[in-house]
Nucleic acid binder design. Sequence first.
DNA 1: AATGAATGAGCTTTCATTCAT
DNA 2: TATGAATGAAAGCTCATTCAT
Lengths: 197, 197, 197, 197
Amino acid sequence: MNLRDKLKESTREAILEAAVSVIISNENDMRMEDVAEKAGVAIGTLYNYFGNRQLLIDTIIEKRRKMAEDHIRQSLAQTAGQDVAARLEKLFQTLQGFLARHRTVTHHALQAKEADANSPGQKSLTAMLNEHVSDILQEAVQREEIRPEDMDLYPLVISGYLKGIFALADDSLETGSRPDFAKRLAELFLNGAARRS
Amino acid sequence: MNLRDKLKESTREAILEAAVSVIISNENDMRMEDVAEKAGVAIGTLYNYFGNRQLLIDTIIEKRRKMAEDHIRQSLAQTAGQDVAARLEKLFQTLQGFLARHRTVTHHALQAKEADANSPGQKSLTAMLNEHVSDILQEAVQREEIRPEDMDLYPLVISGYLKGIFALADDSLETGSRPDFAKRLAELFLNGAARRS
Amino acid sequence: MNLRDKLKESTREAILEAAVSVIISNENDMRMEDVAEKAGVAIGTLYNYFGNRQLLIDTIIEKRRKMAEDHIRQSLAQTAGQDVAARLEKLFQTLQGFLARHRTVTHHALQAKEADANSPGQKSLTAMLNEHVSDILQEAVQREEIRPEDMDLYPLVISGYLKGIFALADDSLETGSRPDFAKRLAELFLNGAARRS
Amino acid sequence: MNLRDKLKESTREAILEAAVSVIISNENDMRMEDVAEKAGVAIGTLYNYFGNRQLLIDTIIEKRRKMAEDHIRQSLAQTAGQDVAARLEKLFQTLQGFLARHRTVTHHALQAKEADANSPGQKSLTAMLNEHVSDILQEAVQREEIRPEDMDLYPLVISGYLKGIFALADDSLETGSRPDFAKRLAELFLNGAARRS
DNA sequence: AATGAATGAGCTTTCATTCAT
DNA sequence: TATGAATGAAAGCTCATTCAT
């Protein structure tokens, strides 16, 4: 990659970062003018790079989704072969950390409709999560760690957990404030809330 | 209430219904012009009744929240004194039914930011749910039905369940398609997914 | 038609007149902002009345076409039954007068492409002229006033005449400056330029 | 002309050809970006060669005008000394052929306003035609072939003929489809449409 | 001399809101 | 009190032109 291309790449990144910061600031939706100003480029430049507003938004969402998926894949790889409790704990931990860092944008990602006409190949964040959760659970069923009868409920419940995590106020997700959070959540999923005799 | 007031009231209702139907149709956000046409009144009339667009939306959300709360209160009253499994089942059932009927608008309600500048006194749907869930759970703790140590997790998890329910496709929420859904969900919450020896 | 409707009608006319005057002034094509200012209304009002820029232009062109057709019909009706020389003279005269008064807009009308997708029912000014010319000529053929062999050339030639008339500089078309113009043109068409022995 | 100049010349030609093909394609007017891409050069290069958009267009139009004038001069030279019928026939034939090959661009040329501020020295295609037609006709007047009284009408009528020719649909102008067209048109001009006793 | 990324004025269009009737 | 035509601030987007490389 030569110098010119590096400059282009950094402009592209600057625009994406600016757009994220405008989305987060959350006054006036995401105005192209604001993005341009924040990125320190002209409006036209936004359109040179992203074609139109929606494509810019799609790019951001897709990027976050990819980041999230990378985190998740990595955490799953690290716990390969371990029992379901450990794997769920790790998954929750990873997500908790990711969401803490990317709250607002991920908020958009979570709400993103499936596959727009313009971006047909994209998977939603939710769909991606469900897939990975299913992988863990199916393995756990095979190891006879969890009951197969309620397999239809599990993804729903887990993605509910994740949405619950996401709904927590920012500060309570910050590092350190809830150290054993993920572990206890995994535990709860497996063993339930009922008092043990 | 005299005749004049009754007329006013029915106009008000007509506008609210029209607004809901415009929101649901989901083309072009919710344009005041569309609401007026649907309601069979002039645009100016909308402003006579609701001041501005945001107040109209707030009113709708608040109304749904009240409706939901009524359902919930009623279901809780009906199960007063029963064990937590029965009460949660009934709660899930109630919510499932409500959401099936009011999907789109409730979608807005669930996402509504806490307390806008314009509508300071309103409670969010989520907050309201959390309160009622807490009531059930605290009672269950006192009855020693559930473990108190994870009390901080339960509302999170339950509201996650509800968001999970909500995320289901419309048709799978329709009456009858998942008869034992609520019961199994309550079960899962209490006893967990782990295989029982 | 009540008072309100009359006001609307006059606003509509004001916009159309303003648009014509902006087209004629011929700086900056026809900017909606200029039309609004000239008409003394807000930009939004233009869109209330005409939907979009193209529909406004279409309306103007169609109106001119209708005006031209009215003139032509009337002139043809006045000369019904007369010989082809008299009828052509009258037609040329009518067109000469019309074009002198509506040069610039008619310029646009002459160039207007046939039937846009949005305005399917419209006939072009040229097509309309050709029709009327054909009527005159076919009648003349039946009366054995003109030679039928070159019937395929006549409409082409006549509409060429008209475009020629149109190409004349404004001032030479003004009233009185070329009194016998139409008569001589009709003569030329019928008897040719060759010196008569 | 050295090698460097030859390269420059061929770039210049490539740009002009590209511009013509973009004009003809007739989507999006004539965008500089499209011209550059079609010509296989950078946008900046267009500006190096032609200064600005208008000058590029002017150059194209002027080039076409020159080509047309060359054809016409040649055809007139070939018929020098012949009678007016033969000369007009040849002129019409020449123009018919030229227009068939250069329809769209000539369309622009015919409509080009006289002398823009930027290109003061240019003559319009129409003006050029009128001059040559006048030459033929004045000679014919001197030979007593045509009547001098209507001399003021002739150029108008002839240029009308040409516009009429031009208005024909593309295919009917193709070679061979109307072989005796020019001859009959000349005839019509000289002897008129009236039935001969 | 060629490049093409960056520019930004300028254009169309939308729609919540107002206010004279 | 109801009306709905008029308003005009925004917003998205285009494209001729520039100039650092």
